[in-house]
């Protein structure tokens, strides 16, 4: 079983991202669960969401404490939230940034970066002040993890995006190509 934790801010679409990723894996025949840590989900407040992906039915109903992947949709959160908490020693962190991981204090970790914000703005997703980066980040995650194909992600986005399905699918494809890997 693979466990993924999303960190975002209210309004960025972290909960929807965890659901769309689960749908893409479900489409490929995997057992999946997606759930939020339901807190004070005001716009801008820190939000946590989770996805589990497995080859067997998933019966564990507790939260995820030792994820295999951590996805940080807003690196500004890293001053208030310990996003790497519990990440498995071999686990990956995916950062939405134009910086290098060590510039954000991430060292000794398998890390990858993508400018999901820039890609979302380019495709007109959300506003410049508050771009919706969730679909771009899933495209990048598909490349990073190999857990789901970009084709499945695109298919889910075309069918399930609440708005602008083509733009969301294009953003995911761009992010898939734009991912930068940093081995520790």
């Amino acid at each position: 079983m693979i466990e993924i934790r999303f960190h975002g801010r209210g309004g960025q679409g972290a909960v929807i991202a965890s659901q769309l990723l689960a749908m893409a894996a479900f489409k490929e025949g995997k057992y999946v669960v997606s759930f939020p840590y339901y807190g004070v989900e005001r716009r801008g407040a820190p939000v946590t969401a989770f996805t589990r992906i497995s080859d067997r039915p998933i019966r564990i109903k507790s939260q995820i404490y030792e994820p295999d992947y951590v996805i940080v949709m807003d690196t500004g959160l890293m001053s208030q939230v310990d996003v790497l908490k519990g990440l498995k020693p071999d686990g990956w962190v995916l950062l939405n940034t134009t910086k290098r991981p060590e510039e954000l204090g991430v060292t000794g970790r398998k890390a990858a970066t993508v400018d999901a914000t820039g890609i979302a703005i380019k495709h007109g997703l959300g506003s410049k002040a508050a771009p919706i980066v969730n679909t771009a980040i899933i495209g990048a995650f598909a490349r990073l993890s190999g857990l789901v194909s970009i084709e499945s992600v695109v298919d889910v986005l075309l069918k399930k995006s609440p708005a602008a399905p083509e733009k969301n699918a294009a953003a995911a494809k761009d992010a898939y190509e734009a991912l930068v890997f940093y081995e520790r």
């Binding site: 479900f26 057992y31 669960v33 997606s34 939020p36 339901y38 998933i58 109903k61």
Partner: peptide
């Protein structure tokens, strides 16, 4: 059903 653990959790 348990709040959030099922109510807001997406499953097949």
């Amino acid at each position: 059903m348990d709040a959030f653990i099922l109510s807001h959790t997406m499953e097949p």
